[in-house]
């Protein structure tokens, strides 16, 4: 039990560190990830807490609660990644457009 808790603890810490280092520099994103990290730390260190919260919400088992939360979290991540991808695509499009127009203008104007 102690070993699996240790592994999960390290994995979670690594995931949060990667998120902070590479993904978001927005304060709201960092607060949300930090809050979720704290909840998960509590669930890892004190497993009965998940059961208690699940029971209070009428879900039943703690593992079900974590399963639902994981799905919701994954969907949010997919949505955020989609937006990020669109932003990158938009930047790339603008860049290609600017190059194309500038190049065409230079050719037409003979510069």
């Amino acid at each position: 039990m102690i070993i699996i808790q240790g592994i999960l603890f390290i994995l979670l810490l690594t995931a949060i560190a990667i998120y902070f280092r590479y993904f978001s520099h927005q304060i709201i994103g960092r607060i949300i990830v930090l809050a979720m990290g704290c909840v998960l730390f509590i669930f890892i260190l004190f497993p009965p807490t998940a059961n208690y919260v699940a029971w209070s919400l009428g879900i039943g088992r703690g593992v079900d609660l974590i399963f639902y939360l994981a799905h919701a979290f994954m969907l949010i991540i997919v949505g955020l990644l989609y937006i990020k991808l669109k932003e990158q695509q938009s930047i790339l499009t603008e860049l290609i457009r600017k190059i194309a127009i500038e190049f065409s203008r230079q050719k037409t104007d003979g510069k």
């Binding site: 290609i96 457009r97 190059i99 194309a100 127009i101 190049f103 065409s104 037409t108």
Partner: peptide
């Protein structure tokens, strides 16, 4: 014609 070319 005026030609504009997207590189991709």
């Amino acid at each position: 014609v005026h030609i504009i070319r997207h590189i991709i």
